[in-house]
Structure formats: structure tokens, C-alpha cells
Design a protein around this nucleic acid. Structure first.
Length: 647
RNA sequence: CGGGGUGUAGCGCAGCUUGGUUAGCGCGCUUGACUGGGGGUCAAGAGGUCGGCGGUUCGAAUCCGCCCACCCCGACCA
């Protein structure tokens, strides 16, 4: 027997309204948490699982979700009693959610520590002045939460902590001998999202792990590349241990160039981001970054398909509407987008140097990619031209054609390979409310096509499913949807230079510190796990991040034999490290089974008379949706649970 | 920021067009009885500043004005 086990309920005296019913507040007899005392030793090699009774905590499950919840994770996290809304993009994390979040964070901490990083904590509130040097007060825009204190000073609620930690390091880093260094924190972040949505997937307040590393060199021992690779491995470990199916994809590389940034995407249908993959080579990239393999190009010598014909196309807002009106499919139309080039003076350019305007032409069914436009144009930065300035310069915005390379001064024309082909094209007519049919490159644009300073053919659009792979000849790219749960990034000296973070190197010369940053959306990871692991009945948590590993469903909690068996079972499981939730509610079995499915605990153990008569309990896995459960003898139940949870 | 929509009990909704007793329904909640292995049955209850402010009127959930909050699509964004 178990020493210290108290007798059944009936032995206790005192007035009871009904002898067979526990009054509120009375402990569930079998679940005395002090059956096995926590060890007094400081160092423990075994972790004891927790035991919680359903009636002693709060798990407000509901049959219906609020109407505004649309994506599965939002609906289920609400229905299963994990979260409740407080304001737009702000949520309470109830006990079940907090247990899962704590487990995710614990995995993150273990892997970060193992990779040589040190945890610390910075404030969420920071003086607004910190953002001045890096100009993020402007570039971050309205997404930066600002608030005034009683003295009228503006403060910010941190969206990330590059400025705070760079400022901190300015005071403590003096020598290259202190490098490399990698510091991280798990903390609440704030971003004043224009449109928070989808429950925990896009919040204004959310939990994030952010890490920052510091180096003297890009490569070599102790260099940024070294830590970056370690973080890549740590992130892979973290999401694998969380039980998630994910992809590491190449992302926009920023100031360093090359493969200086990876996003970790949990793959699932409802993901907001598009990921392109090549099965043959293993290449994966997000839509902003994804390269496209070799594509055929036009010669600009193809014959016209007919006489240029102008069509009146009034009040048609988009390319699809124009196409329908003209009876032309979007993939036979040219979309011409006007960008302002950085540093381009009005009227200049055109013959090398910096052009004033960069005009990109893609097929109507394709999307222009700003990063590719910038790269192909060979300029520092591009920005979509504002309506007024473009009109002033002579662009018929909305009806621009490639002919502007000859009519507007300072234009560098970038033509996507697919748009450079011959055949029938429709295009803008360079005047309001008009388009043209039978656009022909040679006839309409002429000699400018032969001037490499004015016209460049290349890749300026987002990759799409079916495009040739950039890494494996003959294979095509495929698209999947994903949720970005992690991002690792080589910052370079962007922040250290902006804020003056330098150390002395071994030549006693002042050197800019090279930085990397590494983020994981902890609360988003919880939501992503639910997006990826659910069925019609509720959540199916991976064991590593489930709030409890096992739920013991007690059929008759007021029956002393059942209560006692549940208590002993819970205790034995806890000793083996299993976190146990005992459903001791006086509810009908159907309610309890439905709720157990809903909250997604991986293992369900049902304690009822039928099984107990054989000294057994019913064992059922949440993912085994069809099965009816299996009677497992008491003597083997712990082993069975542990095996299932580790397996 | 542009377009669309919704605010009535913890949740989901009706009532509003055509102003008029005490504002209803389902789920949930409380009490009791019967039940007891996949959201049970019956009975009796509790629970509402009808988003806010102002206006019209003898009288406003209902009509008018302003404001606020929230959601969806887009833009933007880690």
C-alpha cells in the first residue's frame, strides 16, 4: 500500500447535506498531493509530475466559440478553456494555456542554454529616445506602441530589444576577448498591429523569446556564422522537440546578403505565409526570397500579333476586371509598376548611375517582388512611387505601359523573363481609362530594348507553384502554407554602427561589433501547434507541450473505490514524471469524454467499475479516435503511459 | 488607412422594418428528483445600465445624431 494514504471519505465526520456527495471545497480523497513529498535535495535527477484536480482549477470549456473566432486554433483554444479575449489582440492565458506555454519555454531555454546562450531579462518599457539612432521610431511606424508618462516623456513598449541590448552592451563590452556572446530572454512583446487577428497567431501582446549575439568577425571561430549555425541547430531541435512539423526556409537576408536569414515555418493550411519548396534539392524559401530557376526569355524580335488597338476601359479597379472586360486572360497582360529609386534625382539617370525611376513589368497574373526589383535595378532602395509624384512625372498611374522608357526621363525598365516573351499582349495605354491590345515589344518600345542601361530582362517577381527550381534542373517549385514561429537573422553592424557599439580588437583598433538576432514566437507556437494538430473533436497536443500528459476520467468521483484508485494511479504516474489531470467533476461521462478530447491531453485513463473489477483501467490515446479504449492492468499502466508518451 | 459588418444574460442568437404591459429563446449556471460509459430527463430558479452620450416623443432595445468597442476582406507587418 501507499504509506500516508488517508482513509476513504466516509471516515471523516462533520455535517454533510448528502452522505454520498462531497461538499464544495472538500479535497478529492484520493488526490492528496502530499502522498509523495517533494524531495528536499537541491539537485534532482528525476522530475515528479504534477497532479491537478479539474474541480480545483479553472477549465472553462464551451460548446460554442465566439463568432469572431474563425481559424481552428482560435476556436479550439477558446472552447477548450485556454484563452479568453481581453481586448483586440490581447488575451488572458488561463491555467491550461500557461502550462503549455511554460513547457514550450522550457524547451526553448534548454536548447538555448545548450547552445551556449545566457538568459537575462530586459524591461518591456523603454525610453523612446533609444529608437532615435536606429530610426526605428520611423521605420517601425505605428506598430510601435507609444505612451506618455506623468512627466510627459514618450516611452515605447518594446516590439523587440535590439536597441536596449545594444545600449546595454555599449556600457559593458570593451574588448574582443568578451566575444562571442549570446544573450536571450523570454518576455512579453508589444506591437500595435493594424489588424490583430486569428487569436494567438497575430496579437498586440505576445510572448517571444529573443536572442542577440555579438561577434568580432563574420566567419571563423567565434564568428557570427558560427553562432548562426548553432542557432539553426537549436531551433531545429526546439521545434522537433515540440512535436511540430516544420520547415526552415530562406528568407529576406537584409544588410548582410547571402543566406543570412532563415524563417522556421510550421506547415499547415491556415498559415499566413507562402513557402516554396523544391522536392528534388530540398531548397525552401519564403515568397519574398525565393529564386526562380532558368526561364526562357523573349528575343524582342517576335512579330506583332496584330495592329495596336486602344480599348476604353473606364472604372475598372484591378487587372482582373480589366481582363474580363477586354476578354483577355491576366497571363496575357503586362502589369507595369512604377518605383522611385533611392537617391535618384528628378530627371537624371537613364545612362547608367542611379535612375530616377525603376519601372518593373510582369505578367498580369504575377506579383512584383520589391527585393528583386532593387537587386536587378542595381540601386540601394526602391519604394512604390506615390500617386502624386508619379503623375507629376508623366506616368498615367494604373494605365502605364513599358513605353514610358521612351517618354519619361530617367526610367530604367525591368522586364520579367515571362513578360519579355513574344505573342499577344495587352497593356496600359499610358492614358487614363484606356488599355491597348496587340502590344509588341519591338514595335512599341524600339531601340531602347537594346540599351542595357535602360532595359534589363531578369527575375523581378514572386515565385509561384510550377516555376522551375533554382537548385535542381528539371524540377518545379511547389507551394505550401506556413506559420512563422521562428526567425534567425544576421544583423551585421546595422545596430552597432547606428548606436556606436565598438570594442578594441587584438591590434588595439576600434572595431564595430557584428550582431545576430534570433526570435521565437512562444505564444504563436502554441497556436501553431493547435493549427497543425486538431480534429473535429478538439486539440491533439504533442506530448511535449500538452498541458497535462494524462487525464484520469473518474466515472463516479463520489464512489470511494474509484476515487481511491484514481488517486493511487495519479500518484504512481506522477512519480514517473507524468503530469496528471484528474477529472473529478460530478458530470455525466459523455461530458467528461468530450472535454478530454477537446483539451487534447494525449492519454486518457478511465476509472470505472467495469475495469476496476478486473483491477484494471481503461487506456486510450487521444489520437486513436476510432478505438474504444483498452483495459490495462493497474500493475502495467504506468509503463504503458510512459511508453506511449515517449513514443 | 480603404471597403464591409456587428454590439441585447457567461456563450450563441431573436425582437428593431411598423416605438406601447414585466425584453425573449437555446446552451451554460443554481436547487431538487430521476438518471449514470460519448455533451441525459423533468420541475423550480438566478442572471440584463439592450455598447456609450445626446436628441425626438406622453413613452425608445426599436427613430435621429455623435462617439466608442469589436470582427471580416484588403493595405501594412516578425
Amino acid at each position: 500500500m501507499f504509506p500516508g494514504l488517508r482513509g476513504p471519505d466516509q471516515e471523516r465526520g462533520g455535517p454533510q447535506r448528502r452522505p454520498d456527495r462531497r461538499p464544495p471545497g472538500e479535497p478529492f480523497p484520493g488526490a492528496d498531493l502530499r502522498l509523495t513529498p517533494m524531495p528536499d535535495t537541491t539537485i534532482s535527477t528525476t522530475r515528479r509530475g504534477v497532479i491537478q484536480r479539474w474541480t480545483a482549477t479553472i477549465i472553462p470549456t464551451t460548446r460554442e466559440a465566439p463568432t469572431d473566432a474563425e481559424v481552428p486554433s482560435h476556436v479550439l483554444l477558446h472552447r477548450a478553456g485556454f484563452i479568453r479575449p481581453v481586448g483586440a489582440g490581447i488575451y488572458d492565458y488561463l491555467p491550461l494555456a500557461w502550462r503549455s506555454l511554460t513547457k514550450i519555454a522550457a524547451i526553448v531555454r534548454e536548447e538555448m542554454d545548450a547552445a551556449g546562450a545566457s538568459e537575462m531579462l530586459m524591461p518591456a518599457l523603454e525610453p523612446f529616445e533609444l529608437f532615435k539612432d536606429t530610426k526605428r521610431d520611423e521605420t517601425y511606424g505605428d506598430n510601435l506602441f507609444r505612451l506618455k508618462d506623468r512627466k510627459g516623456r514618450t516611452n515605447a513598449l518594446a516590439p523587440t530589444h535590439e536597441e536596449v541590448i545594444t545600449d546595454l552592451m555599449k556600457g559593458v563590452l570593451t574588448s574582443y576577448k568578451q566575444l562571442p556572446l549570446n544573450l536571450y530572454q523570454v518576455q512579453t512583446k508589444f506591437r500595435d498591429e493594424a489588424r490583430p487577428r486569428a487569436g494567438l497567431l497575430r496579437c498586440r501582446e505576445f510572448i517571444m523569446k529573443d536572442a542577440y549575439s555579438f561577434h568580432l568577425t563574420l566567419d571563423g571561430p567565434g564568428g557570427l556564422g558560427d553562432t548562426y549555425d548553432r542557432m539553426f541547430t537549436a531551433y531545429s531541435n526546439i521545434f522537433r522537440r515540440c512535436g511540430l512539423s516544420f520547415k526552415a526556409v530562406e528568407a529576406e537576408s537584409g544588410p548582410i546578403g547571402g543566406s543570412a536569414s532563415h524563417e522556421f515555418m510550421v506547415t499547415c493550411e491556415s498559415g499566413e505565409d507562402t513557402v516554396l519548396t523544391c522536392a528534388a534539392s530540398g531548397y525552401a524559401a519564403n515568397v519574398e526570397k525565393c529564386e526562380i530557376g532558368a526561364r526562357p526569355r523573349g528575343t524582342f524580335q517576335e512579330p506583332p500579333t496584330g495592329d495596336l488597338a486602344e480599348v476604353h476601359t473606364p472604372n475598372l479597379p484591378g487587372i482582373d476586371e480589366v481582363g474580363k472586360f477586354m476578354k483577355v486572360k491576366p497571363d496575357r497582360m503586362l502589369k507595369t509598376i512604377v518605383f522611385r529609386a533611392a537617391g535618384g534625382g528628378g530627371g537624371g539617370g537613364g545612362g547608367g548611375g542611379v535612375p530616377a525611376w525603376v519601372v518593373a513589368v510582369v505578367r498580369g497574373d504575377h506579383d512584383v517582388n520589391e527585393g528583386k526589383v532593387k537587386a536587378l535595378a542595381g540601386v540601394d532602395a526602391v519604394a512604390l512611387a506615390s500617386l502624386e509624384e508619379a503623375k507629376k512625372a508623366g506616368f498615367a498611374v494604373g494605365y502605364v505601359s513599358p513605353r514610358v522608357v521612351n517618354t519619361v526621363p530617367g526610367v530604367r525598365l525591368l522586364i520579367d523573363a515571362d513578360a519579355s516573351l513574344g505573342g499577344f499582349w495587352a497593356s496600359g495605354a499610358d492614358k487614363a481609362d484606356h488599355h491597348v491590345k496587340h502590344f509588341n515589344w519591338r514595335r512599341e518600345v524600339g531601340a531602347a530594348l537594346d540599351d542595357p542601361a535602360r532595359v534589363i530582362v531578369g527575375d523581378v517577381r514572386n515565385a509561384a507553384a510550377g516555376d522551375p527550381s533554382p537548385r535542381a534542373e528539371g524540377s518545379a517549385l511547389a507551394t505550401t502554407r506556413g506559420i512563422e514561429v521562428g526567425h534567425i537573422f544576421k544583423l551585421g553592424t546595422k545596430y552597432s554602427d547606428a548606436m556606436g557599439l565598438k570594442v578594441l580588437d587584438d591590434q588595439q583598433k576600434s572595431a564595430s561589433v557584428i550582431m545576430g538576432c534570433y526570435g521565437i514566437g512562444v505564444s504563436r507556437t502554441l497556436a501553431a501547434a493547435v493549427e497543425q494538430n486538431h480534429d473535429a473533436n478538439g486539440i491533439l497536443f504533442p506530448a511535449a507541450i500538452a498541458p497535462y500528459h494524462a487525464v484520469i476520467t473518474v466515472m463516479k468521483p463520489d464512489d470511494s473505490r474509484q476515487a481511491d484508485a484514481a488517486g493511487r494511479l495519479a500518484d504512481a504516474l506522477a512519480r514517473a514524471g507524468v503530469d496528471v489531470l484528474i477529472d473529478d467533476r460530478d458530470e455525466r461521462p459523455g461530458v467528461k469524454f468530450k472535454d478530454a478530447d477537446l483539451i487534447g491531453v494525449p492519454v486518457r485513463l478511465t476509472v470505472g467499475d467495469k475495469a476496476l473489477d478486473q483491477d484494471a483501467v481503461e487506456f486510450k490515446l487521444r489520437k486513436d479516435t476510432a478505438g474504444k479504449g483498452e483495459n490495462v492492468p493497474m500493475s502495467g499502466i504506468v509503463e504503458r503511459c510512459v511508453g506511449a508518451l515517449n513514443g
